[in-house]
Design a protein around this nucleic acid. Structure first.
Length: 596
RNA sequence: GGUUCCGUAGCUCAGCUGGAUAGAGCAACAGCCUUCUAAGCUGUGGGUCCCAGGUUCGAAUCCUGGCGGAAUCACCA
C-alpha cells in the first residue's frame, strides 16, 4: 500500500480509538513537506483540531506519537500546527526495489468494458501551411491522447481537415491566374507552402482591388463585397458545391499537394492520427441533421429561408445553422462531424483540442446537440487552450506576422546541431546517428517549451531569444537521461548488475529520499494530468525529477560507492529515474536519446 | 456594451481541491571538471502575488467591487 493511504487510514484509526468522530477525507490533508523543514509528508492538523478539541501543537504531538508507531514512520516533528512525518528509509528503498523495473509503473490498468474516447486535434485549413499556433495544438492534442491512454482509455486520435470553403477557392483561383501551371515540385517547395503562397497572392491582389475601388469613391465594405476577384472566388465555390468537374479536379489536386506537405510536418512533430475526417464529407450530414431538426420543429426557419436554433431559453442567443441560400456555416459541419463520429465510435467522450477563441462555439455546439435530442450531447468536451503570442502581440497571417512551423523546426534542429558540435559531443557516431540525435534534441526543445506551459494560459514566444537548451528545458531532461544511460552502461561493463532484492538497513540521504519521493508521485501526476488534460503537469514533474537527480548524481557516487547495498540502491534509483523520465517524456511526445 | 478568461521576480513560467518564510529557469555576478557526460552542480542579488474590501485559525488561491489586458458575441472559419 502507498504511504499516503497508510497514513490517512492510521489517522482515522486514531480517531476511532480515541472515541472521537471519524474525520472524512477532506479533513485529512497530507502534502509534501516543504524543503526547509525536516520530513517527507506533512499532515495539516488545523482541520482536525475541531474534532479533537486540543491546541494545534498538542493535537500534532498526539497524532505524531500515534503515527510514529507505524513501521513506515521513523519520526516526526510539529511546527505551528504542521505535523511533519519522516518516512522510514526502508519504505523508500522497498518502493524503489519493487518498482525500478516495473514497465507499467504509473500506468492505470485498462478497466473492464470499453472506454473509447476521441481526441480531435490539429484541424488545419488547406489553404496555408502550419504555424506556431498549430504546433501548440498538435503537441497538446497528441500528448493529451497519450496521457489519456496512460489513464486506461482507449483513445482514438482524429483530425478534421477543413478542406472546403471560400479560402480554398482563393488559392485555387490564384493558381489558375498566376500559377503558370507549376507544381510544388517545379517550384522546389513543400506543397502546403506552395498553396499558401497562392493564397497570399490572392489576398494581395484582392486588397489592391479594394484599394482602387475605395479610391474611386466606393465605401470599403461594398468594395470588399464587389471586388471582381472575390466574385470570381465565390463563383468558384458555387461551382465546387455543384460538383463542377474541372473545379473539383483542381481542388483535389491542390489539396493533395497540401496533404503531402502536412504529412512531412506531422512526421517531424511526431504526431499521427487514427482517422481523418474531411469537412467536404461531413457537411452533408450536418445539413441533413438540420433538415431533420426542422421537421421535428426543434429548429425554426425564418422568412428568408435561413435556419436557426433558439437558445434564448438557455441564456444564449439564436444561432444561425443554415444561410438563407441553404449553404452551411461552420457549426453546421461540426454538428455533422459530431454525429458521424458518435456513429463511428460510440465514444464515452469526444474531446476537441481547439483554441480558447472558440469557447463560445463549443458551448453552443453541445447545447444544440442537446436541443436536437442527442443523449450524448454532454460527452462533447472542449479542451480549450490559450493563444501563442509574439512579443509584438497576436500572430496575424494577413500581416505576415507568423512563425512558420517548418522554419521553426529547422531552426531548432540547426541550433541543436551547432551546440552539439561546440560542446564536442557526439564524437565517434555515424552521421546518421548524429542527425537523428540532433533532431531529437531540437524537436525536444521545441516540444517541451510549448508543453510545459499550462494549456489554458496564453503564452508568449520570442523568436529572437528563441528557445534555451539549458535550465528548465527539454534538452536538460534529455541530457539527464543520456547521462544515466551512460552510467548504467558503465556499471554493466564493470559487471555491476542491479539486483531487485531487498537490502535492509540502508539509511538514505535527503537527496536520495527526494528523488525516490518524486518517482513515487509519478502515478498520481499521470492521473491528475488525465483529469485536467494537462501535459504541463507531467512536464513539471519530469523536470523536478531530472533536477533532483542531477543533484543526487553530483553529490553521491554510484558505481564507485563501496557499500554494496547502497550501491545497489543507487543503481536502482538511477534505473527507475531513467525509466520514469523516458516514460514521462513519451507522454509529452518527446524522445530521449541514450547519448548526447 | 454583454459574457468568458487572464494579471506572480527585469523576461518566460511553477505554485495540486485555501496551509508554514511565494518557487524554478533565463538574464547578471561569483565559484566547481586528473574522479560515473560541465547541455551539469553550488552560491549572491532580484517580489506591494494588479488595487481595495470581505470570508477564516490561515488567502497568490475563494467572494464582491475597481484597474489593466485578451477572446468572443458574424448569413467568417
Amino acid at each position: 500500500m502507498r504511504i499516503e493511504s497508510i497514513i490517512s487510514s492510521a489517522v482515522k484509526q486514531f480517531f476511532v480509538e480515541s472515541g472521537l468522530p471519524e474525520p472524512d477525507n477532506s479533513l485529512i490533508q497530507l502534502q509534501k513537506t516543504r524543503r526547509e523543514f525536516k520530513g517527507d509528508f506533512t499532515l495539516v492538523v488545523f482541520p482536525l483540531i475541531r474534532l479533537m478539541r486540543k491546541s494545534p501543537d498538542q493535537a500534532g504531538k498526539e497524532l505524531g506519537n500515534y503515527l510514529k508507531e507505524l513501521p513506515e514512520i521513523n519520526d516526526f516533528n510539529v511546527i505551528k500546527g504542521f505535523l511533519n512525518l519522516i518516512v522510514e528509509s526502508a519504505y523508500w528503498s522497498g518502493f524503489i526495489t519493487e518498482s525500478a523495473f516495473d514497465s507499467s509503473y504509473g500506468l492505470a490498468g485498462k478497466p473492464a468494458g470499453k472506454q473509447t474516447v476521441l481526441v480531435e486535434f490539429s484541424s488545419p485549413n488547406t489553404n496555408k501551411p502550419l504555424h506556431l499556433g498549430h504546433i501548440r495544438n498538435n503537441l497538446l492534442g497528441y500528448s493529451i491522447s497519450m496521457i489519456l491512454e496512460a489513464n486506461g482509455k482507449d483513445v482514438k486520435k482524429v483530425n478534421l481537415v477543413n478542406d472546403r470553403g471560400i479560402h480554398i477557392c482563393k488559392s485555387m483561383l490564384a493558381w489558375q491566374k498566376w500559377g503558370k501551371n507549376k507544381t510544388p515540385a517545379d517550384a522546389g517547395m513543400k506543397g502546403d507552402h506552395f498553396v499558401g503562397d497562392m493564397y497570399v497572392k490572392f489576398e494581395k491582389a484582392y486588397a489592391r482591388q479594394i484599394g482602387e475601388m475605395v479610391e474611386g469613391g466606393m465605401c470599403e465594405e461594398e468594395a470588399r463585397r464587389e471586388a471582381p476577384l472575390i466574385k470570381e472566388a465565390r463563383e468558384m465555390l458555387r461551382k465546387w458545391e455543384a460538383d463542377d468537374p474541372e473545379v473539383t479536379r483542381l481542388w483535389k489536386r491542390m489539396n493533395s499537394w497540401v496533404y503531402e506537405g502536412f504529412d512531412v510536418t506531422y512526421r517531424r512533430l511526431g504526431v499521427s492520427f487514427d482517422k481523418i475526417y474531411y469537412e467536404s464529407e461531413t457537411y452533408h450530414t450536418g445539413k441533413a441533421i438540420i433538415e431533420d431538426g426542422l421537421e421535428k420543429s426543434l429548429l425554426k426557419k425564418k422568412d428568408d429561408g435561413s435556419v436557426w436554433a433558439d437558445l434564448t431559453g438557455r441564456g444564449l442567443d439564436e444561432k444561425l445553422l443554415l444561410r438563407s441560400d441553404g449553404t452551411s456555416v461552420y457549426i453546421t459541419q461540426d454538428l455533422g462531424t459530431a454525429v458521424m463520429r458518435q456513429n463511428d465510435y460510440k465514444a464515452e467522450k469526444m474531446y476537441y483540442v481547439v483554441g480558447n477563441e472558440q469557447d463560445y462555439h463549443f458551448k453552443v455546439l453541445s447545447l444544440i446537440l442537446d436541443e436536437l435530442g442527442y443523449e450524448w450531447a454532454d460527452s462533447v468536451e472542449h479542451i480549450s487552450y490559450g493563444m501563442v503570442e509574439l512579443p509584438s502581440g497576436k500572430m496575424k497571417s494577413r500581416e505576415g506576422k507568423v512563425v512558420d512551423a517548418d522554419d521553426l523546426i529547422d531552426e531548432m534542429i540547426e541550433t541543436a546541431g551547432k551546440l552539439s558540435a561546440e560542446l564536442g559531443k557526439l564524437g565517434g557516431l555515424t552521421s546518421e546517428e548524429k542527425e537523428s540525435i540532433v533532431e531529437t534534441i531540437g524537436t525536444g526543445a521545441l516540444k517541451y517549451f510549448i508543453l510545459k506551459v499550462d494549456p489554458k494560459k496564453n503564452m508568449i514566444f520570442n523568436p529572437e531569444e528563441s528557445i534555451d537548451f539549458n535550465g528548465n528545458t527539454g534538452p536538460f531532461i534529455q541530457y539527464t537521461h543520456a547521462r544515466i544511460c551512460s552510467l548504467l552502461k558503465k556499471a554493466e561493463q564493470q559487471g555491476i548488475v542491479p539486483e531487485s532484492s531487498e537490502r535492509p538497513g540502508l539509511s538514505l540521504s535527503d537527496k536520495e529520499t527526494r528523488v525516490a519521493a518524486l518517482l513515487h508521485e509519478f502515478p498520481r501526476v499521470i492521473a491528475e494530468a488525465g483529469r485536467n488534460c494537462s501535459p504541463a503537469l507531467i512536464a513539471n514533474l519530469v523536470y523536478d525529477l531530472a533536477k533532483e537527480y542531477n543533484q543526487f548524481y553530483h553529490d553521491h557516487p554510484v558505481i564507485r560507492e563501496e557499500n554494496a547495498g547502497l550501491r545497489n540502491f543507487r543503481l536502482l534509483l538511477s534505473v527507475m529515474t531513467c525509466n520514469v523520465i523516458k516514460r514521462g517524456m513519451k507522454l509529452l511526445g518527446i524522445e530521449v536519446p541514450e547519448v548526447m
